[in-house]
């Protein structure tokens, strides 16, 4: 009996999660509501079955996610019985930070990067699971599965611990924390195949439907609520779907007719642009993700 690639990936992710939980005091799983988070949550439930995963989920919220994401999140939490912590950076909330007036860089920095640091400090979490994959972006290809962050949440790419076999070193000094990436070795295609094989629920925004969109700098943006300044005449209804999910004003839609899971996979296999293209945050400059990560972004 030879294990298939999905069976090997699943077994590895489960092994990583059990190690992480065994070697930390206060673990938490960062839950961003996207498809990678959905897979990660599914794997967590498998890893600790019949127990519930011994950690809460935490959503570092920006108040600017798609409405469908909030609905989906609350529904999944109710179905799984997991505890959920929602954190919104109070400073960003008081200042009304938004992508329209403040730009994507400041919006992301305050809500997400700062918000995450505040939330980890507030709850004194010493280990956080994240759903990042090495195939997403070149700087991720070298990140470890267990990645140590300083007490300032900084990542030092030059001081990474070698990871041999399936032995992970999660030891840390007081104040330091560990980010753990159980999906490190998964690709986007693996994620979709696994969602298909395991019938994992995902946010409906991944499937094509008629949605109101406007065009901004060549990117299709969905008008998800009335906070978005638009000229009513520029809004059109088109059949679109999303390859990644984030803050709706910063997430590009693609025109598509793929309204079922298998159609998405088919379309993706025949597709012509990679996943992160829809994410406005990456376009700032080459190496932008690496800089953000050094500053504490996931």
């Amino acid at each position: 009996m030879t294990l298939s690639h999905l069976q090997r990936l699943e077994a590895e992710s489960i092994q990583i999660m059990r190690e992480a939980v065994s070697e930390s005091e206060r673990p938490v799983m960062l839950y961003s509501v996207g498809k990678d988070s959905s897979v990660m949550l599914h794997l967590a439930i498998k890893a600790f079955y019949p127990s519930l995963p011994p950690f809460p989920l935490m959503h570092v919220d920006t108040t600017w996610k798609f409405r469908a994401m909030y609905e989906f999140r609350d529904q999944r939490v109710a179905e799984t019985g997991m505890d959920l912590i929602v954190y919104q950076n109070p400073d960003a909330r008081d200042r009304g930070i938004n992508p329209f007036d403040h730009g994507s860089a400041m919006h992301t920095d305050l809500w997400k990067t700062e918000g995450l640091k505040q939330a980890l400090d507030l709850h004194r979490f010493d280990l956080a699971f994240g759903g990042a994959r090495r195939d997403e972006e070149k700087s991720r290809a070298k990140e470890r599965v267990f990645s140590i962050r300083s007490d300032q949440h900084r990542w030092d790419p030059k001081a990474q611990r070698p990871e041999l076999w399936s032995l992970y070193n999660a030891r840390k000094a007081p104040g330091e924390s560990v980010r753990v990436f159980p999906l490190s070795n998964w690709t986007e295609l693996d994620i979709w195949q696994y969602i298909y094989r395991e019938d994992i629920p995902i946010v409906p925004l991944y499937l094509a439907a008629q949605r109101p969109v406007v065009e901004r700098d060549g990117t299709l943006i969905m008008v998800d609520d009335d906070r978005m300044p638009v000229d009513p005449n520029e809004v059109t209804h088109r059949s679109v779907r999303f390859r990644t999910l984030g803050c709706y004003p910063l997430t590009g839609a693609i025109e598509s007719q793929a309204s079922t899971l298998t159609e998405i996979i088919q379309e993706m296999l025949l597709a012509t642009s990679s996943e992160r293209q829809g994410r406005v945050i990456d376009h700032d400059s080459t190496g932008s993700m690496e800089k953000k990560k050094q500053e504490g972004y996931f």
Partner: peptide, 30 residues
């Protein structure tokens, strides 16, 4: 395609272990 971190792109060398993924009809490769 495979030289990832900013520092090493500038130096023109790879300086660490990086993992790449590809897949064919028959196998997934790491």
């Amino acid at each position: 395609l495979v030289d990832g971190l900013v520092a090493e792109r500038e130096q023109g060398i790879t300086i660490d272990v990086a993992y790449r993924f590809f897949s064919t009809e028959r196998r997934k490769f790491i």
